[in-house]
Simulated scan of single mutants.
Amino acid sequence: MPQITVDYSERLADGFDRPAFARDLHTAVVEIAAARPPACKTRFRRTEDVVVGPDTGGHALVHVHIALLAGRSDETKARLTEAVLDLLRQYVKPSEGQTLHASAEVRELDASYRKFEGE
């Protein structure tokens, strides 16, 4: 915990500093949601096909999903979501003529969530 997934348009690959974004996102999650630094895990999923409205041209998407253990207030989740959007503004630079659609969601992990660490 937290489990972080970042879906992003393939056309953003060169303009998205993913390592720096993840580093600063982990810092924000620790400061805002009281997560432990070694528990922060982020995976990036590049999406080839994006359709916005009636066409595919000129649009790029980034959506960040953050799943936390239960117990954070709605205010904390909203602050974290706003921090994510600020970081996306900083670390995602779409190509000329591209419209960036950025979004984020913070939700609670289901009570069934379990994990293990091993070698």
Rank of each mutant, 00 (worst) to 15 (best):
L85A: 15
A111L: 08
R89Q: 08
E96N: 13
S103H: 04
Y91R: 03
A102Y: 10
S95G: 15
S95K: 14
D86A: 14
D86V: 15
D110G: 09
V92H: 05
L88I: 11
A104E: 00
R89A: 11
S95T: 11
D86R: 15
G97K: 08
E96G: 15
A102Q: 13
E105H: 06
S95M: 12
T99W: 12
A102M: 06
H101T: 11
V92K: 12
P94H: 00
S112D: 09
L88P: 04
V106Q: 01
L109E: 00
V92I: 09
Y113E: 00
G97R: 14
H101S: 07
T99L: 15
R107H: 12
P94F: 10
V106N: 01
Q98L: 08
E108M: 10
L100M: 09
T99G: 11
G97E: 01
S103N: 06
L109K: 03
D110C: 09
S112G: 04
E108C: 13
E96S: 12
L109G: 01
E105M: 06
E105K: 05
A111K: 09
K93V: 14
S103R: 02
D86L: 13
H101I: 11
D110Q: 13
E105D: 06
L109V: 02
S95F: 11
Y91K: 05
S112M: 05
Q90N: 03
A111V: 02
A104P: 00
A104S: 10
H101A: 05
L87Y: 08
L100Y: 13
L87F: 07
S103I: 07
L100K: 13
L85Q: 13
A104F: 05
E96M: 15
E96D: 14
H101Y: 08
R89S: 07
D110Y: 13
S112N: 03
L88D: 03
L109W: 01
